[in-house]
Design a protein around this nucleic acid. Sequence first.
DNA 1: TATTGTTATACTCTATAACTATA
DNA 2: TATAGTTATAGAGTATAACAATA
Lengths: 160, 160
Amino acid sequence: MCVDRTLLPCMTSILDHKLRRAQLLVFQDFAGTFSKLRLRPAEFSVLAMIAKHPGQKQTTIAEGLGIKRANFVALMDSLERRGLAERRKGEHDRRSHSLHLTEEGTRFVEGMAQLWSEHEDRLVARLGGVENRERLIALLDKLLCGAAPLADDPDQPQAH
Amino acid sequence: MCVDRTLLPCMTSILDHKLRRAQLLVFQDFAGTFSKLRLRPAEFSVLAMIAKHPGQKQTTIAEGLGIKRANFVALMDSLERRGLAERRKGEHDRRSHSLHLTEEGTRFVEGMAQLWSEHEDRLVARLGGVENRERLIALLDKLLCGAAPLADDPDQPQAH
DNA sequence: TATTGTTATACTCTATAACTATA
DNA sequence: TATAGTTATAGAGTATAACAATA
């Protein structure tokens, strides 16, 4: 019961630790929710990002998600094999690939959105209301200040 | 710019995503800070936990940290090889191991505490003050409700 | 039978360096 | 020379099943 003479706080009160536990819990709820679709968190995020930014090149999408371009390749390979998304040779710069959902991918993303809200609702319930989700996101944003996302949020109607 | 017709929010506004990014950022700051000690986050947490709960058995410490007992073994092996912590055969139950810091481990933990506060200060600065760290921890606790930690916090001054 | 610690194994995510083909 | 995508590889962390020793 914290009887030591060190200056360390208890692990259970340390931000790093709580962040890790919370992230784990959230991803496990995600995994449970999306196992029917055989979809991992990273794959979900790629599909969602392409849906929001169709035609953007591969590196841009990857960076927007904080995924190293080297690690993005296998992710995109898998989505392409499943027929959900596709790479198209860049017209102006033939080194680059522009990313798009397939028709099937578009339908798939609609199914994702349904499952997503179930998952989201559970998290909001745990947090005790949407206001607390917004507070949590605002605090995480402070922590993340300097890590610039793709500029997509400003245009949002901000329903959340 | 969020031009799609799906019901999905932008990835960059999704809690799961922000939690992952924040956790990554915090652990990277940790890694930079503790590379001098050649200490990974998981090893740090084990040493800190043993310092607070000397003599507890292996499974109890592991569960308190949310680490599966199977994964705890290699972690403890490494700390034992470095002479920082040790297993002792349980007196009453000879299946179990009680965990302790060595003398060197105790000194090592004091060095950890110093580096720790530098790391912590950087996070608090990003968050904009200790009040925000407490708010963040309180919100993460709500998310984690039901995941019981080792009962060490009640004795804390409870700044939060 | 159940529990403690252990081994073996696999999966996810992350990180770096080096290659290729274009620019 | 620089960039886009790729390959290969390594390191963390996590998860499950099965085993030996002990209860």
